[in-house]
Simulated assay, not measured.
Amino acid sequence: MSLTVFSAGSLRKALPAMAEAVGLDLDVLFGPAGLLRRRIEEGERPSLFFSANMDHARAVETLDDYAPARELAVNRLCLFGRREALECGDALAAMLAQENRLGTSTPGADPGGDYAFSVFDRAEAILPGSRERLRAKALPLVGGSLHGKDGPGRSPVPGLFEAGKVDLFLGYRTSALDVVRSVEGLAMVELPPALAVEAIYGVVALRGDPVVAKALALLDSLPATEALEQCGFMRCDGA
């Protein structure tokens, strides 16, 4: 019997790899963590909920059916896009350039968008006025809706570049690695320390179910965490 799981879309590669490493059968709905949280609050009860931030995980843990949230992994943001848009080598200058269309996930619905706007907040300390300029030009093109249980699937971000809708995207480094490999002509730059934002992922499990507890223990095991790291994530303990 498979376990029903709600998971942040940015785990669409890592979570199946973790499950395969420990022999788990998971029936996963991938999507923006904020929208998945809303479905849980409205009454749905997945066995496990994986969020791309701890805020949504902690909100779900307040429900009587769920155990306390646990930190799962660390991701971080980076900037990626057309090589010519990144030629200056300065992430902030590239994002602010008028000719560069900047894509993000949708704030509120998707933690990826919230993290991107946190980068904009940090930019204000470097260049006054940049926060509002970046917020005004950011295009929240992904993470605003759910698309059903279609397995791991493919990130929608490559399609944005293939369709010529964006020049740059501010998103997770794990996703950027896959997008840059899959779309010709793209490159990636790390954010400087003054702009860097880390994403702490969390997991919440139904309480009182031994099958769910065993599944969570397997996902915490060494084979699963090694699969997670192979997908570009870091463990929260820094190991």
Rank of each mutant, 00 (worst) to 15 (best):
G81V: 04
C78R: 09
G113V: 15
E99D: 09
A116G: 11
R82L: 01
F80R: 09
L92D: 05
L92C: 10
A94F: 09
P107G: 10
C78V: 13
D114Y: 14
G81W: 03
L96E: 04
N100F: 03
C78S: 12
A85R: 08
C88A: 05
T106S: 14
Y115A: 15
R82C: 02
A93E: 12
C78G: 09
D90A: 03
F80K: 10
C88M: 00
S105L: 13
S105H: 14
N100E: 02
G89M: 04
D90V: 06
A109F: 14
S105P: 00
D90T: 03
A97S: 09
E99V: 00
R82P: 00
N100I: 00
D110W: 11
G103F: 03
G89Y: 08
L77Y: 03
R101N: 06
T106Q: 14
F80H: 12
A97P: 00
A85K: 01
A116P: 12
E84G: 04
F80G: 10
D90N: 12
R82Q: 02
D114N: 15
D110P: 01
E99K: 07
R76K: 12
D110M: 14
F80C: 13
R82F: 05
G113D: 15
T106N: 14
G81A: 09
A109K: 15
G103V: 00
L92H: 06
Q98S: 15
A85T: 05
L102T: 05
R76V: 01
T106D: 12
T104F: 06
N100P: 02
A93P: 02
F117S: 13
T106G: 11
Q98W: 12
E87K: 03
A116T: 04
R101H: 08
A116R: 06
F80I: 10
G108L: 12
R101C: 12
D90Y: 04
R83A: 08
G112Y: 11
G89V: 04
C78T: 09
G103Y: 02
A116W: 01
G103R: 00
R83V: 08
A116C: 12
A91W: 08
L86A: 05
G103A: 07
R82N: 01
R76W: 14
D114K: 13
L86S: 05
D114M: 13
R101T: 13
F117G: 11
G113T: 14
A91P: 11
L102F: 08
G81I: 04
G89Q: 07
A109I: 09
L96I: 04
G113W: 15
P107F: 11
A85P: 00
F117C: 14
C78P: 02
L92W: 10
E84F: 07
C78H: 05
F80Y: 15
F117N: 13
L77K: 05
D90F: 01
L96A: 09
A116D: 11
G89A: 06
L102S: 10
N100L: 02
L77H: 07
C88F: 02
E84K: 04
R76P: 02
L79I: 07
Q98R: 15
C78F: 08
F117H: 15
P111A: 13
G89R: 01
L92P: 08
E87W: 03
A85I: 02
D90S: 02
G113F: 15
Q98E: 15
L96K: 03
S105E: 11
G112A: 15
P111W: 05
A97F: 00
L92Q: 07
F117A: 14
L77P: 03
